[in-house]
Each structure stands twice: as C-alpha cells, then as structure tokens.
Design a protein around this nucleic acid. Sequence first.
DNA 1: TTGTAAGCGTTATCAA
DNA 2: TTGATAACGCTTACAA
Lengths: 344, 344
Amino acid sequence: MKDQVTIKDIAKRLNVSISTVSRALKDHPRIGAGTKARVLELARELDYQPNVLSLNLLNNRSNTIGIIVPKISYHFYSLAISGIEEVAIKAGYTIMICQSNESFAREVANTQDLTYSRVAGLIVSQAGGTQSHAHFQRVVDRGIPLIFFNRVCEELEVPKVIVDNYRAAYTAVEHLVEQGCRRIALLAGPSGLHISNQRLLGYLDALRTNGLPLREELISHSDFTHEEATRQTKALLGLPEPPDGIFAVSDRLAISAMTVVKARGLKIPEEVALVGFNNDPVASLVSPSLSSVDQDAFEIGKTAAQLFFSHLGAGPSAETRTIRTRLVVRESSDRRGAGKQEEG
Amino acid sequence: MKDQVTIKDIAKRLNVSISTVSRALKDHPRIGAGTKARVLELARELDYQPNVLSLNLLNNRSNTIGIIVPKISYHFYSLAISGIEEVAIKAGYTIMICQSNESFAREVANTQDLTYSRVAGLIVSQAGGTQSHAHFQRVVDRGIPLIFFNRVCEELEVPKVIVDNYRAAYTAVEHLVEQGCRRIALLAGPSGLHISNQRLLGYLDALRTNGLPLREELISHSDFTHEEATRQTKALLGLPEPPDGIFAVSDRLAISAMTVVKARGLKIPEEVALVGFNNDPVASLVSPSLSSVDQDAFEIGKTAAQLFFSHLGAGPSAETRTIRTRLVVRESSDRRGAGKQEEG
DNA sequence: TTGTAAGCGTTATCAA
DNA sequence: TTGATAACGCTTACAA
C-alpha cells in the first residue's frame, strides 16, 4: 500500500499549518475563503481521503455498527440486515456483519472482534447453539449499546425487536386445527432459544384451547439443519399414530419435512397439512406452495437500527418493540381451497 | 459508553510504565516473569480489551477486508461471502460487507467508505448499474489490494475469480438445442457487465455452431428484477414466433419466466424448456424443478480471499482463477426424462 | 484568520 | 528487565 495523502502533506505544500487544513476541509467558520479554496483544490488534486481510523481513535469509537446473525444466507437475516443498513447509512454509519453460523464459540469470538474494533454498538440475533450470555453481559457492562432482534436474550435488559412468537405459533396451530388436523407435530427450534420456547408455548396453548391432547412424541427440538429435520420428520411419520399436520418453526424445516412427506406418497394437505415460519420467497415457489407465518424482516431490521440510534441519543433503555406477523395460507394447509390471511 | 480500560490504567495501578504493560500483554521476550503475571492478572480483572483502532492507526491499515456485492440476499453472494469469511477468519482478519443494491452510486459510496476506513483490501462483485470503473481505478492507484469475483471489471489488471461464463452459456444453450429447441431466447443481464457479454457470446456461438439462426428479438437484456423478467417473458411469448426454449442468466430470472410460462398454460419442458444459472437451492424446489448451471459460490469466495492474501504477501498480480461449472439438468429442460450433468 | 500543542491507545526505538 | 519518548492522522482548545 502506498503512503496515503494526509493533511500534513497538504499543509506542507501550501505552507500553512495542519490545523488550517483541517478547518478548511471541515468547513470551519473561522477560515479565510482563499485559503479554504486552495486547500480544497489541492485535496482534490491529490485525491486526499480522510483517515477515519484516526478520528475513531480520537473519539474512541467508530461509526460502525456491529451485526451478529446466525447466517446471512438465511433469507430472513439478509433482509433484516438490509433494513438495518438502510437506517444506518442515512445516519452516516456503516455496518460490519459477522456470522455466528449457529455456533456459540463463534458468536463469542465475533462479539470480541467487534468490541475490540470499538464499534458504536451491536445489533444481534443469537446463535442456535447459545450456552450463556456472559459475553453479552460484558458488552452491556462496558456501556456499549446492544440491541437484540428476533432471537433475543431474555435475561438482558436491553432494547429488543421481536414478533409475538407465542401468538404467531398459536394462530398457525389453530389454523391447522380448523383444517381438521388432530395430531399436530411441532418441528421446534433449539430449546436454548427464547423464541423456540415462545413458539412451543403457543403450540401447547393452541392444542389445549382446542381440546386436543398433548403428545410429547410429536414435539421435535432440532438445530436448523436439513438433515436433522429430515430425520425427525421420518421418525414422526414412522410413529404408530403419525401426525396429520406439521408446524415447523422455519420454512427451511418445513420444506425439508415436505420433501419427506411427498417421498412417502402422502397427500398434502389432505393427509398431512404443513405450515412454516418466515414466509421466505421459496414458500410460494415450492409445490405445493407452503403456508407460512410472515414476518417483515426488513421492518424488523429497520426498527432494530432505530432503537439503536435512540439508545445512542437518549441513553439506555430496555424497550421492546413487537412487529406484527400474519399467517399466509397456501396450498400446503388449505384443505378447503379458500386461501386467506390471519393476523397473529 | 463508559471509559474503556487502557494499558495506561494498568500501568498506573501497577506502578510500571506503559511500555512494560504493552510488552507483558504482547508476550514480549524481554519481560520479567513476575511483572508479566501481575499485568496479565490485572488485565483480566479489569476486563481489558485492546484497542484495535489505535493499532490500525499506527500501522495505517486495519485487519478488515471490505466486501462489496450487489445484494447479500442473493443466495450466490451469501455463500461467496461465507467462503471469503472462512479464509479471512483463519488469517485473523474480519470482513466488512457492503451492498451496492445494483446501484452504481452506492457502489461508489461503498468504495469510498471502505477506503476511508483503511481496509486492508477490497473484494468486489460489481453492481448491475455500473457506469465506469474510475472509483476502482483510484483504489488500485492507491495501492490498495482489489480482487474481483463473478462480476469482474475487465478493464482493470487485478486478480479475478470467475467461472467460464462463455462456456457455461454455450453448454446450456447447446443442451437446449439437443432437447430439440429451435427458437431459444436469452434472458440476459445488464449489458454493462462483462459476465453478461460473455454469456451472450456463448449463446451466440452455440446457436451458430448448431446451425440455428440468430434472432435479435429473442435476446432481452434486463436488470435482475422480477418485474422486468416478467415483462420480457410476456413479450417473448407474445411474438409471432415465440421461443420454445429460454436460457436465463440467473435462477431468479428463470423462475420469473417459469411463472409466466405456466400462467400461459404452456407445458414445460415440452412447449418451452427452461435453463437458469447459479443452481440456487430453489431450483430444485420449484415445480417443475429448474435446470441450472451450477457454480460453487463458496469455493469462488474462498478463492477470492486466497488471491487477496497472496496479493498481500507476494505483491501485485493480475492472476485470474477460473472455477468449474456444471450444468444440472432437471425437469424444466429434460424432454427425454434422462437427467444428467455436463461439465461446462 | 491562522498557528501551536495536546491528546486519543498503542508499539518501537533507544537509553538506562 | 524496564522506562521515556516519538509516532500514526486528526481535531480542538488556546494563543497569537
């Protein structure tokens, strides 16, 4: 890398002091018009680029927001990140994205990297393999703004953006009941995650309210891999009394399940009805099309970023924003050929 | 944000000089064992975290690789980024991801942001709306390592990772010919992109070699939006002599086209055969399943990162690495019910 | 209106 | 083995 042009170089060439150059570049009020013009001219000529690193050091913080998500290849997160980015850019901030890949160890390492880099704050969705929140507690203790979205850490009193997972799951399961399902399986997420538990509660309450018995064997906790979901669906279909409906906590899981169900020659939705979560674009592309709980990922990301900036400005808060979801009914669960949407 | 603990604080508390603390923390050889132990102990107790910003300033560069891609929500890019990240992390680097959103202006802004932040280098896939490469030329002129992948800038002599787009397109189109297609349309990308042109050339040569006439009206240049692809496919199908095969330069475009073809009641692949590009996971999920040119995005990302580090170590180069592709034939173009894969 | 100098956190050089 | 000091690029009182 070549030596970069600094204000010192400009100062030397123009025979002025570096502070004069700084002021000219910064449009400072107390600066001669002629001097300013000459500085700007030379700066352009030399292709001067301000060194953000030195500013960051001076202020002991950067204009970068650190983001940690399980995987950017999950469509939900790529959209949420775009939402965060939109707000961040408008505020003159850039974002630094890390993937935990669902690994607790990587999440801890990511957190450290980002705090070492003195990011202005962190916006996080937890890894599935989460084991403790000590690393996040340290962030909070240092007074670094920390915002959670989607997969939040319930133990920390920080701003959060979520959907009402309990209610969304309740609505989805009740929809399956309305379609005539009596043995509804749950492809749940990792039990360490708050959202997993919320969705589980919604599932349980929907069964209870509708007078259906709880059958432990119909509940499968999983990581979010295709292999695991495939294995578990096979196990479910192999039960003496197999499910006639499956609610999966992500569309990826639901599609893995769908593949297994189709391979068994079972009719969807007549013999097994399916509902997923996220309303990923693939949901409408698969065949049969997949019913799914829609959550506006872009909006969730935007809201998280907004909470970050209000946290920055107004000081610590622990506000929780809840974003609406809606159930999008498609072929995979529509036994009456109606098609509809329910708030949830 | 609270004041962070610095080596100065540790030095004061221990009544030693800051250089001693620095040495202890850095495992410097010339340091007393006892002193070192006391420093490390206190550092842990105070939760000392090194300030990367100051190091960056000292070295005038960061351990961050800047990445600019059109959209992280394109599955290809999220995979490529993961590939880059894997290599980067092993080398002790972090990545900073920017999205151009296919906008030339944003790409220029991203480039500026990243160079202002003194990233160690840039790994880029160009925006569809690209208009000039002056902003990248400036990066090169400053001696900042710049690597392109996938959508490369042909005019710059820098390392690049590509697939043989000409050959991949040739193979795909020839496959359609073999399936009996005689009027093959091309849903091409923006004409400003090198890969668009390469794929166009492959298309043209495949027609010529196979004795099919070139029909200008069957070639549609587009941005990568669903709307545009939908509009263009409708136009194609409305021609006096509509196509009996469509090669789209991305799976997203192909699926948009597929939707239109299905809506017209035309049979796939009998009346219109379809081939896409990227082998996105959705390709195997849609119905009929979509034939597609597979490119190993993760591998492409890894290779780009490797080129970056060899560029860093061994000095400037303009090496171009070509990653293999293969045509994955699925229902959308398989008129003989065979199913096969061809290198391309 | 312009210049001087201190300081942000760290490392490297030189001296003790 | 340890300490003092300069330096990285920039902003900002304070002084001129």
